[in-house]
Simulated scan of single mutants.
Amino acid sequence: MTMEWLRTSAFFGSILFALMGVLIFWLSFLIIDKLTPYNLWEEIVEKQNKALALVVAAMSLGICIIVAAAIHG
């Protein structure tokens, strides 16, 4: 039984792709936040807008799926 994930190149490649995915997600969230007519973070955290939080959660999952597919494929 070999442990492929213990190879240095596989380990650091996984770390690199994870960091790239988080960075791309965060940048896309900031872009979408700038495109909306109000501050998403303020609306969700301070005003407790649950409907907007659900929309942002769905958007976040969609972006994450796209980033994961782009990195994997």
Rank of each mutant, 00 (worst) to 15 (best):
L30K: 04
C64I: 07
G62S: 11
I44E: 00
V45S: 03
I63C: 04
I32Y: 03
E46R: 05
V55W: 14
S14L: 10
W5C: 13
G13V: 03
E43H: 00
V55I: 15
F17P: 06
V55P: 07
F17K: 12
T2M: 15
M1E: 07
A53Q: 00
I15L: 15
S28F: 07
A10T: 13
F12M: 11
I31W: 06
A69K: 14
S9T: 13
T8P: 15
E46H: 09
F25S: 13
V22Q: 07
V67Y: 02
V22G: 06
A57W: 01
N39E: 05
S9F: 12
S60Y: 00
L6P: 08
I24Y: 01
T36W: 04
I44N: 02
E4N: 10
A70W: 11
K47S: 03
V67R: 00
K34R: 13
V67L: 01
S14I: 08
F11N: 13
L54G: 08
W26P: 06
K34D: 07
G13A: 06
A18N: 08
E43D: 07
M59N: 13
F12Q: 11
V22W: 09
K50L: 10
L52A: 06
L35K: 04
R7L: 06
T2N: 15
H72L: 12
A53G: 05
F17E: 13
I31L: 09
A58W: 08
I24V: 02
A18P: 06
L35H: 03
N49P: 08
F29N: 02
I71V: 01
N49R: 02
A68F: 05
P37G: 05
A18T: 09
W41F: 15
L61P: 10
A18H: 10
H72E: 07
I66P: 08
A68Y: 03
S28A: 15
I71Q: 01
A18W: 09
D33T: 05
A51N: 12
A18C: 08
E46N: 13
C64Y: 07
K34H: 11
I65D: 07
